[in-house]
Amino acid sequence: MEALFEILKQIPDPEIPVINIVELGIVREAKMMSENEAEITITPTYSACPAMFNIEEDIIKIFAEKGIKAKVITKISPIWTTDWITDEAREKLRAYGITPPEKGADKDHLDIPKKCPRCGFENTTQISRFGSTLCKASYQCNDCLEPFDYFKCH
């Protein structure tokens, strides 16, 4: 139901507050089970994503504020993919300093230079396979010298 997704769009990702959980593509399904009970299915971006607990609590809280009891189901199959990130969210990520992979990217080719979200050049170096969170890798631009995160593919 579109009304449920509109409520869910009010919940920012705890680790990347410039995008919401719908834009990130982790909300897989939202349906009303009865007049005051909803069922929300989410998929973590990474199997060990610690933010999922916060997201579940945020979902339950925001629906409770509207008089709706929310049941949250975490579904790990199919695994989340960066292809589920909306185009609008990709632009928000770039503006925030995180480079999302292009749609359709099969794997993390972390050794291939990534485009710097600040200056746009691909003269970049991987600093670490893990960035500020498990679902990101750390890079540095060799042109503007700014560090940035790259959202890994799954």
Rank of each mutant, 00 (worst) to 15 (best):
A3W: 08
E6G: 02
I11P: 01
I11Q: 02
D13C: 00
E15L: 00
E15P: 01
V18L: 03
G25K: 01
G25D: 00
I26Y: 00
V27M: 01
K31E: 15
T41E: 10
T41R: 10
P44H: 01
Y46M: 02
A48D: 05
A48Y: 07
C49W: 00
P50L: 09
P50D: 04
M52L: 13
F53Y: 12
I55H: 03
E56S: 12
D58A: 14
D58M: 10
I59F: 02
I59K: 03
I62W: 03
E65V: 00
K66F: 00
G67Q: 00
I68Y: 06
K69Q: 12
K69H: 12
A70K: 04
I73F: 10
K75S: 15
K75W: 03
I76A: 04
S77F: 14
P78Y: 04
W80I: 11
W80A: 10
T81E: 10
T81Y: 09
D83I: 11
W84S: 12
D87V: 14
E91K: 12
K92D: 04
K92H: 05
K92C: 04
R94F: 12
Y96K: 00
I98K: 06
I98G: 02
P100A: 12
P100D: 10
K103V: 13
G104D: 07
D108I: 07
L110M: 06
L110W: 04
I112N: 14
P113D: 07
P113G: 04
K114P: 09
K114E: 10
P117D: 06
G120I: 07
F121E: 12
E122R: 13
N123C: 03
T124W: 02
T125Q: 15
Q126E: 13
Q126W: 03
Q126H: 05
R129A: 14
G131I: 05
S132Q: 13
T133C: 10
L134W: 07
C135Q: 08
K136F: 03
S138G: 11
S138T: 11
S138L: 15
Y139F: 14
Y139G: 04
D143P: 03
D143G: 01
C144A: 05
P147V: 12
F148G: 09
D149M: 05
F151Q: 15
F151R: 11
F151P: 07
C153I: 13
C153S: 15
